[in-house]
């Protein structure tokens, strides 16, 4: 009882703010049980040898880390992961940025139609997307292969080709996430004061300079958010086409850190390796967030 009183004094709980804490309880319980505790437990598992079935776990210290970091496969998958990141950033951050600028500043007609149509795939299952594009891009009998055939072009056998497989799976993932990023960036650009842009237009400043000198800095808060979610979320979205279309193959050529962690845990039952890979992935993400806060955030323009 006395500790409860102490806790109450420490948090300065009174009748008024007690309700505030109370309202948070449901969310906090769910996050504590299904997010925060699991993070700690995954760290714990990364120090053990276990296969998820055996009743005992063997403490192995840093062995999992040493094994994962000395496995050439890990570096291959890390390379794939960075290739996915690079492709996804171009397709889902750079291009939608330009599109959002163009639709807001350059185009006058069909704006709502473009917005609705480009946002549409965000509401459709990525498994559906994976299947549709596997058919559309089928190198032998797909519609695109036939149209390409008329002009003497061939579609590479991408599901068996290193490199191409990552390009195609990135395109499938982009189909799903492009519209969401586009809408967020559009919203941010659309919120910039029209007077500044009109003044710049009257001064005959070319569009590309308006984009770089006015739009980019003034929408940078959203820009950076989209940049980060593209890296963090899209890498997870890639999981679906990898699982559905390639299962990481051929020979790990399309696996990324996320898929590999799944593969280690639920296909080959090496819980320790999986946990280690997940912790490494999380460390990379956190490093990225840290760098963002430390170096980029200072130059960001916040409207409010």
């Amino acid at each position: 009882m006395s500790s409860l009183t102490a806790a109450r004094r420490m948090l300065q709980i009174n009748r008024e703010n007690a309700i505030g804490y109370l309202l948070l309880v449901p969310s906090i319980i769910i996050f504590a049980v299904f997010t925060f505790w699991p993070i700690i437990y995954t760290v714990y598992l990364s120090f053990f040898d276990w296969n998820m079935i055996s009743p005992t776990k063997e403490y192995v210290g840093l062995k999992n880390y040493i094994e994962v970091l000395s496995d050439p496969k890990t570096y291959r998958i890390l390379g794939n992961t960075f290739l996915y990141i690079a492709l996804l950033l171009v397709i889902n951050c750079a291009i939608p940025y330009i599109f959002a600028f163009v639709i807001d500043i350059v185009l006058k007609k069909y704006k709502n139609f473009y917005k609705s149509a480009l946002f549409l795939p965000a509401f459709i299952s990525l498994v559906v997307g994976s299947i549709l594009f596997t058919w559309m891009l089928n190198p032998v009998s797909g519609p695109l292969a036939i149209v390409f055939g008329w002009i003497g072009l061939e579609i590479p056998n991408w599901s068996k080709a290193e490199g191409w497989i990552i390009v195609v799976l990135s395109l499938i993932t982009s189909w799903k996430i492009f519209g969401y990023n586009f809408i967020l960036l559009y919203a941010s650009i659309n919120g910039i004061s029209r007077e500044i842009i009109e003044a710049a237009k009257l001064d005959n400043i070319p569009l590309w300079r308006i984009f770089i000198q006015i739009i980019l800095p003034m929408s940078s808060a959203t820009g950076i958010y989209v940049f980060i979610i593209t890296i963090v979320q899209s890498l997870q979205y890639v999981f679906t086409p990898v699982k559905v279309v390639s299962q990481g193959g051929p020979d790990y050529a399309s696996s990324n850190l996320i898929y590999h962690a799944y593969h280690e845990a639920f296909v080959v039952y090496r819980t320790g390796h999986s946990a280690t890979l997940s912790i490494i992935t999380m460390a990379l993400f956190l490093l990225l967030l840290f760098l963002e806060f430390k170096f980029v955030e200072r130059g960001v323009y916040y409207e409010n």
Partner: peptide, 23 residues
């Protein structure tokens, strides 16, 4: 608390998948 909750958006799902499966 707000920062911690919103921060979970940036946690890769593989970090929580094994414990959640076990629960």
């Amino acid at each position: 608390i707000y920062f911690l909750l919103i921060g979970t958006i940036f946690i890769p799902f593989t970090v929580t998948m094994i414990p959640n499966y076990l629960i």
